[in-house]
Simulated scan of single mutants.
Amino acid sequence: MSAALPVGFPQPTEMGEIEVKQYPDYRAVTYTHTGEAQQATGVAFNPLFQHISSNQIAMTTPVEARYLESSPAQSDSPNTVEVSFLYPNPDINPQQIDAGVKVTDYPAMTVVSAGIQGAYTWESYQINLRRLHDWLAENPQYQVAGSPRRLLYNSPMTPESMKRSEVQIPIQKPIS
């Protein structure tokens, strides 16, 4: 990984594994992209980088992409993706916030996560999202508790074959 994880974040899920993980509360700067979901992280990079640079906030890993529409695989229809740079800790308060981004506090969550090594392709995202839905079908003690997200751990300069990422779905146990 090219930067530190936010305080309290677990290590990335190992390649090919599926696991249940706990995440603490965290703060992030978020850019909302509407359009082709595959382009969201590229479009969001400059406004997010400008925010952390102008506020002297250290870069962390991962970059988070939350896919808010129910079917982000349909690239011919607009989709909403929230792309975030995560703050090193939730106590950081930026001095300035540009109009194109927002600072968001996320609550602690439980997720089911698929670990991936390789290029950050849309096909990889879709394959691993299907793997997680299959896992959920086999584990009815959990139910979906939010939109899927992708965590991207490496810089654009990392060779494609060495990049690490995760696809995650927030989950919860049903209330009896």
Rank of each mutant, 00 (worst) to 15 (best):
E36K: 15
V43N: 11
Y153L: 03
S113Y: 05
I92M: 05
S53C: 10
P78I: 11
Q126T: 02
P78Y: 13
E82T: 11
V43G: 07
V111D: 04
E36A: 14
I116D: 00
S53V: 14
M109W: 04
F49A: 15
E123F: 00
Q39A: 13
S124Q: 01
Q38W: 07
L132G: 03
G118P: 02
N55R: 13
A108P: 04
P78C: 13
V63K: 07
S77N: 14
R66K: 14
T60W: 10
L152A: 04
N139M: 04
Q56E: 14
H33G: 09
N139T: 05
Q141E: 08
Y106A: 05
D76Y: 13
Q39G: 07
Y153E: 03
A114E: 01
A99G: 09
H133L: 09
R150A: 08
F49N: 15
N55K: 12
R149N: 05
A65T: 10
L136Y: 05
I92R: 07
G100R: 14
Y125R: 01
L129M: 03
P94W: 09
I127P: 00
Q50F: 13
P62N: 10
P72T: 10
L152T: 02
P88W: 06
P78W: 12
I127Y: 01
L129C: 02
A137P: 01
L129V: 01
I116H: 02
F45I: 09
A37C: 11
Q56H: 15
S124P: 00
Q38N: 10
L68C: 14
L68P: 07
S113P: 06
Y87L: 11
I92D: 04
Y106R: 06
D105I: 03
A73M: 09
Y120F: 03
E123C: 00
T80G: 10
D76I: 11
F49W: 14
N139V: 05
P140G: 04
D91A: 11
P72V: 11
L152N: 04
Y67I: 10
V83D: 05
Q50N: 15
A108K: 09
Y87I: 07
A65D: 07
S71M: 14
E123P: 00
P107H: 06
Q39W: 07
N55I: 13
S124I: 00
L129S: 01
D98L: 10
A137S: 07
N128T: 00
Q141D: 07
V81Y: 10
